[in-house]
Design a protein around this nucleic acid. Structure first.
Lengths: 340, 340
DNA sequence: GTGAAAGCGCTAACAT
DNA sequence: ATGTTAGCGCTTTCAC
């Protein structure tokens, strides 16, 4: 069934050339006589040769593969991010190896020292459970690393993030400008100083301040995990507590979609009685009922930038530069849930 | 910044043992004196040694890595499938390399002969654009391969699929049993003989036959791509054409969710006026408004089975067995969209 | 229980 | 424009 693998040596013998010439052809070395090249290509085709990438990697000391560590692919934001990273990497000739951490601190740390780091040229790392206390773990890292997200700032690595505070400010102002004053927020993490939750809350409060609306703690609903289910639960709690509300800001889309679901269930009209805005602009927001206004975080740009920074650390001119922090652009996408 | 890599040779020198002994320790070879082992482990820790996987792979002729080719991670079904496959593979000590084909025939074929096949021990392959005519391409494959889905039956590879016809029959009967007679179906692919669309349509028609309901072509809406947007368009077309409808069967959840969206927009009550059922049981169906009844296809089981079959082809007792076809169980999940 | 030697398939350096 | 040589880091016989 499985014949022994065809090697370059076989191709060389068949094409009556040296090993090196075959290698040159395979690697598109430019200076090869056309006749030689075609003879080699013929032999390759006839024998069905493909390079052994393990051998190539060993020799080159590089694998052309980068890791992407995300919490979970079943969270749409990360699935879409992975999609974008794979495309961006492909455009640069890199292959992406996805690792799921489950947003568990232990597993997030394990990824940093895992065996996979030895056959990956670098890592794009999107932690959800790590915090500033873990910066130490990052500084022992001796391979190219790009951080994504807002868990760790000023860490010993390149960092791509978005302007969370400004974006949350803009989202809140979007509601304020439409006459809303009792704006609930879903997804807060009490006592947390870093992370998307804290930053987005900051933007929310800043907008209220700016608009002269007093901050009311009763309007803040916690949600540890940012899933549809927790968003739904938080929304239900707010309604059950009979808090007066005319708008909801979900700190991510999943939360907002969960909230939307509960509002629909309870026959609360959106945006009539309560306007809703989310954050992330996942695909689904364009097809919910009603469609969800949200913050578009520039996912593609983030992915592209992360890959580029990593590539520069791997080989490029950025190899020894000080660590850089890139902040991606955002925009507000207005849909039905805040219309009118 | 980057010191030269620590190799087994360095560890051996430090621990005063031979290369082989270090290798034995790293690979958990059982017969090593405890004192030797701990000395080696100490040296490994002190030097921060990790095995070079490229070298190991080259030597072993295996990488411990399997490919998973899917259309797109941004399609929730495939994101969730990828999640499941990664978990199942991890449990067997395998790493998964995801490849996106974009559901483009050309790219689906390219994956089969791609360079990545040379550092992957096998492939789990979920084509969307291929058909029976492409079976030939599969038979030249000389590595372990497991097919997923319903594009290719009786092909030269192991195959994991679900009982599409029976599941679609059950979904349709679910509507019939709730008194629905004018059941529209969204997502048909005209003139296609294989694939999920054709099989699910078959189940639909069989259920109508069984219930003595005449088949009405006016109730069949095409949708080439199974996205929310195409589902929404198809639903809008049906409504605009004023076809009499009391239920909708979306051939997948995305289509059904798109339809749900349009119904909500047009103030059609679900399930009051029109009941809706989908297919796939993606996470989102539990949080739409209303929640969506659907077919649960046993995603976890499919993933686990696929990994197991592949592993058997790679190393196990199944290496030279005839090709197997495994059909996973399904179940109907009743939610609000068909309740009452 | 441990060591010595060979070589997996490829590419980089240095010829020619 | 092509060939020769050496060796990437590891595992695998086969000795001892």
């Amino acid at each position: 069934m499985s014949e022994t693998r065809v090697t370059m040596r076989d191709v060389a013998a068949r094409a009556q050339v040296s090993l090196k010439t075959v290698s040159n052809v395979v690697n598109n070395y430019p200076y090869i006589k056309a006749s030689t090249r075609s003879r080699v290509e013929e032999a390759i085709a006839e024998l069905g040769f493909t390079v052994n990438v393990s051998a190539r990697n060993l020799r080159r000391g590089r694998s052309g593969m980068i890791g992407l560590a995300v919490p979970e692919l079943s969270l749409p934001y990360f699935a879409e991010l992975a999609d974008s990273v794979i495309r961006a990497a492909e455009a640069r000739g890199l292959t992406v190896l996805i690792e799921q951490t489950g947003a568990v601190r232990e597993r997030e740390l394990a990824v940093l020292g895992g065996e996979r780091r030895s056959f990956t040229d670098g890592l794009i790392y999107s932690p959800l459970a790590l915090g500033p206390d873990d910066v130490g773990e990052l500084s022992v890292v001796d391979y190219p690393l790009v951080l994504l997200g807002e868990r760790i700032f000023g860490g010993p690595a390149d960092h791509v993030t978005m302007s969370n505070v400004e974006a949350a400010y803009a989202a809140t102002m979007h509601l304020v400008e439409r006459g809303r004053r009792r704006i609930a927020v879903i997804g807060a993490h009490e006592g947390e100083a870093v992370g998307s939750a804290a930053l987005r809350m900051q933007g929310y409060r800043r907008a209220l301040d700016h608009a002269g609306i007093p901050f009311d703690p009763a309007l803040v609903a916690e949600a540890g995990l940012w899933h549809r289910s927790t968003g739904a639960e938080a929304m239900a709690r707010l309604l059950d507590d009979r808090v007066e509300i005319d708008a909801v800001f979900g700190l991510n889309d999943a939360l907002a979609l969960g909230a939307l679901h509960v509002l629909h269930d309870r026959r609360v009209s959106v945006p009539g009685q309560i306007a809703v805005i989310g954050f992330d602009d996942i695909d689904e927001t364009a097809y919910s009922s009603p469609t969800l206004s949200t913050v578009h975080p520039g996912r593609e740009e983030i992915a592209r930038t992360a890959v580029d920074l990593l590539l520069q650390r791997i080989e490029g001119p950025g190899k020894d530069q000080p660590f850089r922090e890139v902040i991606a652009d955002f925009s507000i996408v207005e849909r039905q849930s805040t219309a009118g």
